[in-house]
Amino acid sequence: MMGNPRETILNLALVLLLAAIPLVATGMGEPFYVTLATRMAILALAAVGLNFLLGLGGLVSFGHAAFFGIGGYVAGIAATHAFNAEPLLFGLPGTNQMIVIWLAAVLLCGLAALAIGVISLRTSGVYFIMITLAFAQMIYYFAISWPAYGGEDGLSIYVRNGFPGVNTLNGLHFFYLCFGLLLAALAVFSVLRNSRFGAALEASRQNQQRLAAVGIAPFRVKLVAFAISGMITGLAGALFADLNRFVSPSMLSWHMSGELIVLIILGGTGRLFGPVAGAMVYVLFEFYLGGVTERWQFFLGLILLGVVLFARGGVVGLIAGKARHG
């Protein structure tokens, strides 16, 4: 299933554009734009995770900041322990190796998503929205009132974590690392969407009774989707912490959860590259409006309201036309 040709061309263009921004920026001696592009790639990755749940499964999780933040704290805590050479847990040392951190973040977020999912997925509709929100708030307040890792002030990562063979301190290298992970996540998304599992997930959105009638338990399908979704978003969180060299409870806040949903809607719900388009547009908004006026969130609100009320297909829908049902 390739969607329509215009969407394919648009997707290619988006990827090439995102890949080219840092190169051009470095050539022009503007390292700040490299950071901007890295931010786009990481937010897109986080939104790809959520898109899995929201776009395919139709499950509106308003608590994905939980996984984003847990991923971030894994990176922050591991790096802090490695920096201070203090053992972490059960005598295990901290680490400044990204691969280990990524694995830990993905694993921990998967477990957290399973725990949250088992309870949340018993409900549906508005209840689901509110319960995922409440769980994320629970973790948020825990992070704020737990003094060991900075509490409300957050936690600094003094040196960006390393990756074998890559100089992560170089913005360009770090960007391509994040970009590579984004492409990998998009590939996973695409493969899963076209698989038997993806079909079952989309069917669970459309009609649970029929899905159950053909012998597939909707609950299990949704739970697995929830876990995968949390894992991808958690990985993005670990990268985000490394990008900013800082983690704070704001990564866990409900504004973050809202932002992730906004990215998907801006781009186009359920589209493979919706999150990429959404993240690029959002970061650009943030940057340019933020440069023009201090009150950029006011205008962001107006634009968002306009998109929800009048342009429901998002950027991808606007350019590439309606989604094929499939």
Binding site: V60, I129, I261, L304, L305, V308
Partner: peptide, 11 residues
């Protein structure tokens, strides 16, 4: 509900 969440978030 998704549209409602987003529009009121924008508000």
């Amino acid at each position: 509900h998704l549209d409602q969440v987003l529009a009121t978030f924008a508000l």
